[in-house]
Write a protein that binds this DNA or RNA. Sequence first.
DNA 1: ACGCGGATGCTA
DNA 2: AGCATCCGCGTG
Length: 207
Amino acid sequence: MVPDVHETRISALLGAPLPEAFYRRSADEVAPDLLGAYLAVHPAGQAPRVGRVVEVEAYVGEEDAACHAHKGRTRRTATLYGPPGTAYVYLVYGMHELFNIVCQPEGVPHAVLVRAVEPVAPTGADPRAANGPGKLTRFLRIDRGHDGGSLLAPPITLHPGPAPRRTVITPRVGVAYSGRWASAPLRYYDADSPAVSRPPKGRVGSG
DNA sequence: ACGCGGATGCTA
DNA sequence: AGCATCCGCGTG
């Protein structure tokens, strides 16, 4: 495939991938630092797909009742125990693939769920085409085939990008079952992004 | 083997 | 507010 003008712009936009040391920290430290970063996917033989991360959640290990590793290591959660900078991709509700980034040293199951990105490439996409954890994997063409893969080199990488002007912190979405962890402030998003998955106020009732 | 319910998204 | 759709995990 011949690199065109568009592809050249993309490579100019992306610096070196975030290194393993970046991910070798607690997920609640990594998560806010990921806001603004570029998430790039290079599907074989296709044009790269890139989004700017604007919403994330931290899942902080076996003690965290909302974390998949809460029940310990199983076949499904084995990926969470892998090295920092590993992709953890799984299916929810029988139809949506969710993309996570494994944090902490190998053996410590922390992860950051990416909940929304602003489309960067291909250009011309609906700005809200990736404003949700299930939607962003479809937009970027990420699926369970990527589970367990390294994020330190293609086909999936993260790169430094413009940090948000203001970061909002709230409880995580969809974890009401997790007791005191349901209210833990572990969701972070760019206050100025139109691509955040939910409005600041809930949609319960009309006022 | 079997049943339950979930880190969602679209439609009414 | 309801539903689609499937797999991991707990229980028998």
